[in-house]
Every structure is written in structure tokens, then in C-alpha cells.
């Protein structure tokens, strides 16, 4: 996958639609194209709004119920706007036994939100995942595409602070 980071803030609505159409042209005749199309679409819009999903269903000649079924199956996909930084805590076996659950609790407390929610300043949203394929680095969290290894519950505040700083720098 070429691009997963959110680029929603830089694009106009028209540009988003154009980009979506390009992706659909690329994938509409490929078997198994639905999931990559959804991944790209989420990177364009920051989440998966209803309208693009209906366009995708039509273009790939799939029932809307099936597209919705795939979207709602994977925790990676979201139908609600998400924060600038998506914090994803791995709760796969290796991360879980090495304290993934404690990290999640610490993040919930630090951010004041539950899983699936976004902070009021739209900076962070919190998700869980089941194995990011980095078990040797357990426990792992992802912030957008950055992998944070051997995370300690007591240190989550420091990790978040880096991004808060970045956001302030942007402004």
C-alpha cells in the first residue's frame, strides 16, 4: 500500500472525489480489490463516509451490504471522522501478555476517551488491533505509521507529547 497516512486536510472535496475515481479505475477489475480500495479511500477522507462507500459499491458491482460488512468487520476501518493521529494499541497475544492491556488503559486515561473515540481537539483517536506483525518488539503501539516498541504504560504520556508538539509546530 502506497499511502495510508491521512491526507484529508490537504485536499479539496473535488480532489478527493477525483482521487477516489482514480483508485476505482485501478482496482475495479481486480479480484479482491475491495479492501485496498477501502484502505486508500480511508487515507483520502480520513475515515469512510457513506457517500464514497456507496460509490465504491456501485463501481465494484458489489452490494452495499457487503461493503458495509467488510468495513464493520475490520477495526482498521472507521465510519466516523478520526483524529489527526490514530493511536492503535496491539492486543495480539504477544503484546497482550507483555502488558498491551495496561498500555491501553493508560492511553484511555491520558486521552480521556474510549476505544473508537476521538479527542475533542480532533488530535487523537484510539483503536485496538490484533497483531501488527511486530511481536518481537512487543508490546507495540502505532501512531499513524510510526511504530513504538516495548512501550511502558508509564511512558505513554511522553509518546503523546511528541505528537502534541508536532501539531503545535504545524500551526
Amino acid at each position: 500500500m502506497s499511502q495510508v497516512a491521512c491526507c484529508c486536510e490537504e485536499m479539496s472535496d473535488q480532489e478527493k472525489t477525483e482521487r477516489l475515481n482514480e483508485i476505482l479505475d485501478e482496482y475495479k477489475h481486480k479480484p479482491g480489490g475491495l479492501i485496498p480500495v477501502l484502505q486508500h479511500t480511508q487515507s483520502i477522507y480520513g475515515y469512510l463516509p457513506e457517500e464514497p462507500l456507496k460509490i465504491i459499491a456501485k463501481a465494484l458491482d458489489k452490494p452495499y451490504s457487503e461493503v458495509a460488512g467488510v468495513v464493520s468487520f475490520y477495526s482498521f476501518f472507521s465510519t466516523h471522522p478520526r483524529g489527526k493521529y490514530q493511536v492503535r494499541v496491539c492486543l495480539g497475544t504477544a503484546c497482550y501478555v507483555r502488558g498491551g492491556k495496561e498500555i491501553l488503559d493508560a492511553l484511555k486515561k491520558e486521552l480521556g476517551i474510549d476505544v473508537g473515540e476521538t479527542t475533542e481537539d480532533r488530535l487523537f483517536s484510539l483503536e485496538v488491533g490484533r497483531c501488527f506483525g511486530s511481536c518481537g518488539l512487543a508490546p507495540v503501539i502505532l501512531v499513524n505509521e510510526d511504530v513504538h516498541r516495548r512501550v511502558k504504560a508509564s511512558k505513554v504520556g511522553e509518546i503523546l507529547a511528541q505528537y502534541k508538539g508536532e501539531a503545535t509546530d504545524d500551526q
Binding site: Y64, S65, A68, G69, S72
Partner: peptide, 20 residues
């Protein structure tokens, strides 16, 4: 070939029905 219903969600919370 109508496709009004499909499994939504996952695991114990999954629901067989229309989109979302």
C-alpha cells in the same frame, strides 16, 4: 442477486442484516 443483507460487524456482536 439482490444483496440487501450481509453479516455486519464481527464476533459475538455480528449481526446479519442490511448495511451498518
Amino acid at each position: 442477486g439482490v444483496g440487501s443483507i450481509f453479516p455486519q460487524g464481527r464476533g459475538f456482536k455480528s449481526n446479519i442484516g442490511p448495511a451498518f
